[in-house]
Amino acid sequence: MADALRLYALLIWTWIRAAAQFPVSMVLLGLASAAVAALDMVGIMLLFAHTPRIAGFTAPEVLFLYGTSAMSFVVADVLLGGTERLGEHVRQGTLDTMLVRPVSPLIQIATEDFSPRRMAKLLPPVVVLAFVLPRLPADWTAGRVVMVPVMLVSGTVIFAALWVLTASVQFVVIDVHAATKSVTYGGAFLTQYPMSLYARDFVRGMTFTIPLAFVNWQPALYVLDRPDPLGLPAALRFAAPAVAVALCAVAALAWRAGLRHYRSTGS
């Protein structure tokens, strides 16, 4: 594991060095990516241009959800978003060249074409969080203060696991890849808003089937001291780390199964 991390860092460092040879282009591309990433935030601000509350939540509260969700998603995307292109590697046969190297193909795919400009997408959520955290109407007990980094880390791990999980599907069927974006990109979008907006059954699904509610919604209920609109047990607010670990295990199993399938069928 430590070895994998060391290699990962090394691969990324090589990419950053390569990109840094064209610094102006790197900065401009970074800003363009940041602008794309900021669109979701602009959407939220447009809503609040018309109303002070949405589904009972104020602008700082929704921006808090946006900031935590986007930050977790971008970090996960930077680390493992490359797995989205697994299908292309299968189709072009480049996965084979990864399989003859003594390093997990997961690490190789994740770092393939790594670009530092993807990190520029962190800009909007970081700015939003820096702005909004001091303005939250929260009672900042030690527990709530600790919960913020905890939710960011578990959110990142959940999104990372979802990247691997959805990529694993591409070992078996490539064509349906676009549908799995509803879980990754869709998950990133829907966690930017309070789940009290959505239909109750949908939220139940997002809690117990695809655990997107644990990216930030459940922990945020604790930070903001809100009742759960579905009346779910309060213990769920602290379950995010456990959910993240469990989802990782599922993703690892899926990846292994997918790789085994690929290696037995070669397609």
């Binding site: 808003y193 959505y198 239909a199």
Partner: peptide, 23 residues
Amino acid sequence: GAVAEAVTNTMFGFVRAWIVLAL
């Protein structure tokens, strides 16, 4: 592949519909 895209488009449609309903 196109229908798979449509599934994601639909899912976004639902989330956005709930948001505008609140607005």
